[in-house]
Amino acid sequence: MTSEMPADLLAHARAAKGFMPEDEGAFLHRLARERLPHGPALEIGTYCGKSAIYLGAAARAVGGTVLTVDHHRGSEENQAGWEHHDASLVDDELGLMDTLPVFRRTLALAGLEEHVTAVVGRSTSVATWWRTPLSLVFIDGGHAEVHAQNDYSGFAHWIMPGGTLVIHDVFERPEDGGQAPFHVWQRAVDSGSFEPRDTVGSMRALARTGGSAGDPVG
């Protein structure tokens, strides 16, 4: 059985709004296929659903559940005046970003609504009641230091032993990109609870090496 993205869903991933290069998406898809048979996967940072298609494609292929958390008001870099602002995603009446309708349409067109469940809210709020062990956590939310660290603090300890932590936009050099995701990666490695695995582009994967889901990871 091939582990590659199926052509129909790859076309939807390419068409979806978002910033994930195709090789990183294929890497995320492969990691999800490995882990989803063992338990649900959680994405932090939905935006318009490009990465959710790669995750959902894995769920369609091997079974399992993908959940994706986002408040859908856009990260700091998505706001007006910032580099990644898209005016078409602003609610005219409210004057606020609203990526949820675009995400829902993206998911419906890809036929993945039964495989990917949206959780609408801030990750810090969701983390307060989260109790489900996870086979994979993908951190790709706000890239400010406080938000990236909160995403790790809120959900990394719910990864089951042998499970996978994936962090996007990891740049070691400040001139290549923001440092918060790199600091989260360093924190995970320094904790002793995670061991680095593969890297593709700016995406890095780590494996949880011990403890039980829910135990502190540092």
Rank of each mutant, 00 (worst) to 15 (best):
78 N>V: 04
27 F>C: 06
27 F>Y: 12
164 T>N: 06
146 V>T: 14
129 W>A: 12
138 F>H: 15
90 V>G: 11
67 L>D: 00
63 G>K: 00
108 A>S: 13
23 D>S: 12
212 S>K: 12
191 S>I: 07
88 S>A: 14
86 D>H: 07
17 K>Q: 10
9 L>T: 02
75 S>Y: 10
18 G>F: 01
157 H>T: 06
156 A>M: 02
1 M>D: 04
61 A>C: 05
177 G>R: 01
215 D>Q: 05
37 P>N: 01
143 H>K: 09
125 S>C: 00
178 G>E: 13
122 R>N: 12
93 E>W: 11
74 G>I: 05
173 R>W: 10
179 Q>L: 14
218 G>H: 02
101 P>H: 06
114 E>T: 14
131 R>D: 12
173 R>T: 08
156 A>E: 01
167 I>E: 12
192 G>V: 05
16 A>H: 03
197 R>N: 15
8 D>I: 08
30 R>N: 09
71 H>P: 09
114 E>I: 04
115 H>M: 08
32 A>N: 02
5 M>H: 06
157 H>R: 14
197 R>E: 15
201 G>K: 10
78 N>P: 04
119 V>M: 12
33 R>Q: 13
198 D>G: 13
150 N>L: 13
63 G>Y: 02
151 D>E: 14
84 H>K: 10
80 A>V: 07
118 A>F: 02
66 V>R: 04
69 V>M: 06
16 A>V: 01
40 P>H: 05
212 S>D: 13
70 D>F: 08
167 I>T: 12
